[in-house]
Amino acid sequence: MFSLRRWWERHGVPIVVTGLVLGGVWLLRHTQGSAIAEIYYWVSRPFQGEPQGVAIARLTSARVRELEQQLAEVQAQNDKLRQLLGYLEKQPQAIAAPVIGRSADSWWQQVTVGRGEADGVRVGAAVSGIGGLVGRVVQVTPHTSRVLLVSDPASRVGVAVSRSRDMGYIEGQGSLEARLQFFEKVPDVRPGDAIATSPVSRLYPAGLTVGRIKTLNKEKGAAPEAIVELTAPLESLEWVLIYPPRVAKESQNANALP
């Protein structure tokens, strides 16, 4: 008994401290490092640049405003036609977020943005920037969220060729080029064609610009392949727009029904 107490007096503290450290780290792993992301948010807050309003104003140049007005005109017409058809969807409100951190590992393509759960960001939200689709929110903390970029090898996005409406999906390759795999055996596609998110995608809003076809490889395998040049400047992102996820909304509606 006495020797056990002696032993505990000598080794008790290191054992307790080691246990606490291991427990804390396990918790950190379980929450995907949200504590560190939060601390990082507060430390980097003074360097995060101008408030949301100013940034949005800067994002919106005169040319963009002109195009937006044209688009609003077309959208209004479109809404009218849809109303006639009997379904008018509410357009979701996007949240502007500053990019405050990059991937903590060279193998994965992620960014950390400075808006989180407290600002209405949810896991699964689509993220776009100047130039087009950027990625998808994979984790949120109260003030930050982690975005998996379209260039990440684990990312898959359903897309359609804007000209011919042929569909497929793109996989990231860790660079500014992604690989497009078509569902059709003989897709109507040629280099230079614009690629946008698919209208049947459940994860992304339809029609977000993704990129442009760079090269085509019709020989490869059962379904043809293409290399797509992503239009969003993923390596120099400063601000992004986060869209509420479509799936969550639909599933909420589904839950509401008996």
């Binding site: 080691t18 780290v25 992301a37 903590a104 590992d105 994979v138 982690r146």
Partner: peptide, 24 residues
């Protein structure tokens, strides 16, 4: 080894939510 395991877990938690292996 203990320090490596602890810091590796920290880095895993920060980097790859979809990774199957605790690489770090």
């Amino acid at each position: 080894m203990l320090a490596g395991a602890v810091l590796g877990t920290i880095r895993d938690s920060l980097s790859a939510p979809h990774s199957h292996y605790p690489i770090h």
